[in-house]
């Protein structure tokens, strides 16, 4: 059973649909014991990262997440809240990934949010087993995590082609800045890998 953590963060339908397409059983929950007993935990996230962190703290879910020993996957804002700090709302995160989340600094000609299909490289985890370098995944975000030792995939964006963390891993915690649930067959492959880690 996969627990999708329910902390009122926008529409989770696309994550649920993606799991359905993989034939995975899931439950949307904020219940500590269900989350602890799940085989896999998904932390989705849409919207404002600072507010997302505040909502997790209100319900003590930040502490629950921190103590999980099963594979956990944060998606987009769900990944950002697991970082040390985010500039969106100037908030300290759960601190599992040792990196900071900052806004893109657009140069003339750059568009923020970074939205659309971009390629991932430097793939360094079982999460990307069978995924070719330069595969395309779908992004929608204005804030991005700095590169760090926890980086397990990178993407370049903008006029300067600066690199940021496309995915992060620390022990049993994984995070993707992109949306695997919207990334076509590649995204489904990555989600399937997560279910088999």
């Amino acid at each position: 059973m996969i627990a999708i953590i329910d902390y009122k963060t926008g529409n989770l339908r696309s994550v649920e649909n993606a799991l359905n397409r993989l034939g995975a059983e899931w439950t949307l929950t904020a219940d500590e014991s269900i989350i602890r007993n799940a085989d896999r935990v998904l932390l989705p996230g849409v919207g404002h990262a600072g507010e997302a962190i505040a909502r997790l703290r209100e319900s003590n879910l930040d502490e629950v997440i921190k103590r999980l020993r099963k594979p956990v996957l944060g998606i987009c804002v769900g990944m950002q809240v697991m970082c040390r700090h985010t500039a969106e709302g100037d908030a300290d995160g759960i601190g599992l990934f040792d990196t900071r989340v900052r806004r893109f600094q657009p140069q003339p000609g750059d568009k923020v949010p970074h939205m659309g299909w971009n390629s991932i490289n430097n793939l360094e985890s079982k999460l990307f087993k069978g995924i070719e370098p330069s595969s395309y995944v779908y992004y929608v975000h204005s804030y991005r995590a700095d590169l760090c030792p926890d980086t397990i995939a990178t993407t370049r964006y903008g006029v300067t082609q600066e690199m940021f963390s496309a995915a992060l891993k620390y022990e049993n915690f994984y995070g993707t800045q992109f949306h695997p649930e919207k990334s076509g067959d590649i995204g489904e492959h990555i989600l399937k890998n997560f279910l088999q880690i």
């Binding site: 696309s14 649909n17 993606a18 397409r21 779908y138 919207k182 076509g184 995204g187």
Partner: peptide, 8 residues
């Protein structure tokens, strides 16, 4: 469509 299609 949302159930079936895996792109935006």
């Amino acid at each position: 469509v949302a159930d079936r299609v895996n792109i935006p």
